[in-house]
Design a protein around this nucleic acid. Structure first.
Lengths: 147, 147
DNA sequence: ACAAAACAGGACAATAACATCCGGTATTGC
DNA sequence: GCAATACCGGATGTTATTGTCCTGTTTTGT
């Protein structure tokens, strides 16, 4: 439905972050896919796939069967936006020339060096933002909440 | 074929930047689609579409017919990476809540504020990099050239 | 044990991004 | 004028992303 976020981040990344933030806010109660879907407005069938991906990488823990659901698998101050992004749709720094020019092997040209420096700046923002920081931010709007 | 650059920039952006850089390096001779395609290794039929987009926005100038081709329409020190990106696949800052939560209207929640700050840092890198800077960079590898 | 809750995973559908092809039009050089 | 060059734009094909559906498996509460 909605396309990419800011023309940069995939829909999947947006969904994964919403789900993780929701779980971070519910540290004690298992959350079912249906519950997370409702809170985050992510289509539940697709959310289910995203949660599977997060489970495979150990970001969340799952308990199957009746009264099962998902739980954050780490302390919120040990998990960053970067961890989530890398799990579902990895940001990859430019390390080799996209044109595969042999002389650019060791050193990217200025164009790709600049593009990589843009990626680096994103990486820095994401690596330094923990879920705890997101929740304790002085920002008046609470993530995912409409009041 | 190759997917997204760094999991962030579209293939189209990469192609457009290669084409523009090539034109910047040839300020005096019109370049045909075939010539640009060869130099940049961008599939010529698709490159043609990209060049049309760049033409519509006035970034390049076109001359049709025999001995026609493309030319940069501005001085290289007046054109930035940002101009090219905005033309073909615009980077859009997050100004309204993607969940459309009414209470987030005026102020994004911390999650989306962080994502936007990542976009802001990219925007800054791109806005401050002119084509001239790319060409005059002390970087030993020359854009698009294999020597 | 068994019915209900809840996730797992494969198949499939819809959409967008990337890419190609081809007939049409403009321009040039002779 | 005319043939060759080169871009234009619509139609179409391919692949990746996003989204849905359905069947099976695990677990629980009684």
């Amino acid at each position: 439905m909605a396309s990419k976020i800011g023309g940069m981040f995939s829909q999947t990344v947006e969904y994964a972050l919403r789900a993780i933030v929701h779980l971070a806010k519910q540290p004690d109660a298992l959350q079912t896919t249906a519950q997370i879907s409702k809170a985050t407005q992510v289509p539940s069938a697709y959310l289910s796939k995203v949660l599977q991906t997060l489970t495979r990488d150990g970001l969340v823990e799952v308990k199957r069967g009746v009264s099962g659901g998902y739980l954050l698998n780490k302390s919120p101050d040990e998990m960053t936006i970067y961890d989530v992004v890398q799990c579902v749709d990895p940001l990859q720094r430019i390390r080799t020339c996209p044109l595969e020019l042999s002389s650019h092997r060791k050193r990217l040209c200025s164009l790709h060096a600049k593009m990589d420096s843009a990626l680096e700046s994103i990486e820095t923002v994401f690596r330094t933002t923990t879920l705890t920081e997101l929740m304790n931010s002085p920002n008046p709007s609470i993530p995912l909440c409409n009041v």
